[in-house]
């Protein structure tokens, strides 16, 4: 069959579009690396962990410890996923196995609406409602705990929607078999449904974790932004993402470069999690 010339132009322009879209990630990585180089060579990678504190714009006396921010990012992510993981999965179980069809549909729309609310609105809501509540427990209010709560609230919809998709993929035969055996609802879900949907549920948790690590606005607005390793849930903290958002505006030279280093670190964490997620997804598809 003869290939028409308009078709040839079309195919090549489509290829060009895909090549552009496909190489964006590489472009982003290149720029992050390029801008970080000065930070890594002039400051030295060891100082990100060993400096006594974060005082980035004081000339020769600058200190570049990223430890408080890394600690804050890890603590808030773990806290959020510990809360949002179980709640999200159970909400999906509710939607799939407990709620009557009409209620399930209504509940699903609520979760979808929550997923569409912008992070800055979550942050604002946390600032005006949660922070004063936490302040009553223990001042100052803007704290790791407030950050964990807002983050958890943000990632519950992500976890719930993906977990629901995973539960839907459990073969109906499994459920019929469990019923035929006279298993209770609890036993069926825990012993039959969860093992069968394990990979899919894993994907839900991993994607939730990715959102929590990368979230900026919500934690920026409720965490207090103090660069100290937190010793309790009520201490104010500053995450890696919030640190970039707060300081890129005025950072110059090494300071700016170190901010790009922390961006690069975030990017590497995300790439690793994407790999884990794809592994799980492939296994979910095979199961």
């Amino acid at each position: 069959m003869k290939v028409k010339s308009t078709d040839r132009i079309l195919v090549w322009s489509l290829r060009a579009a895909s090549a552009t879209a496909g190489s964006l990630v590489l472009l982003i990585l290149c720029f992050l690396v390029l801008e970080s180089v000065e930070g890594i060579t002039r400051v030295g990678a060891g100082r990100f962990l060993n400096d006594p504190g974060w005082h980035p714009s004081q000339g020769a006396e600058s200190e570049f410890s990223l430890v408080p921010m890394i600690a804050a990012t890890i603590a808030s992510t773990i806290g959020a996923i510990l809360l949002a993981g179980p709640v999200g999965v159970l909400a999906a179980v509710f939607c799939r196995f407990y709620a009557p069809p009409k209620l399930a549909r209504a509940f699903r729309s609520i979760v979808e609406l929550l997923a569409g609310i912008p992070s800055v609105v979550y942050g604002f809501w946390g600032l005006v409602t949660l922070v004063p509540l936490v302040r009553e427990l223990a001042p100052p209010g803007a704290s790791l705990l407030a950050g964990i709560l807002v983050l958890a609230m943000m990632i519950v919809p992500t976890v719930a929607l993906l977990a629901f998709a995973a539960l839907k993929n459990v073969p109906p035969g499994h459920l019929e078999g469990a019923t035929a055996l006279g298993l209770s609802r609890w036993t069926t879900i825990v012993k039959v449904v969860f093992p069968s949907a394990a990979s899919g549920l894993g994907v839900a948790i991993v994607l939730g974790t990715m959102r929590a690590i990368g979230e900026t606005m919500a934690v920026l607005m409720v965490c207090g932004n103090i660069t100290k390793v937190p010793s309790s849930l009520f201490d104010p903290v500053r995450t890696l993402t919030a640190n970039i958002a707060l300081e890129l505006g005025y950072a110059t030279q090494e300071h700016r470069a170190v901010l790009f280093v922390s961006g690069l670190a975030l990017m590497i964490m995300i790439v690793l999690l994407v790999f884990v997620q794809e592994r799980l997804q492939r296994r979910a598809r095979l199961a």
């Binding site: 990630v25 472009l27 720029f31 992050l32 900026t216 993402t241 958002a245 890129l248 995300i270 790439v271």
Partner: peptide, 28 residues
């Protein structure tokens, strides 16, 4: 092969935190 490359890189792109897009946009 090209399809696979584009798909994989879009998967990573989808996970990149928005603040990192901000860093990139600012630098680029």
């Amino acid at each position: 092969r090209m399809g696979r490359f584009v798909r994989a890189s879009l998967d990573v792109l989808a996970g990149v935190p928005s603040i990192v897009f901000g860093l990139f946009g600012n630098a680029f």
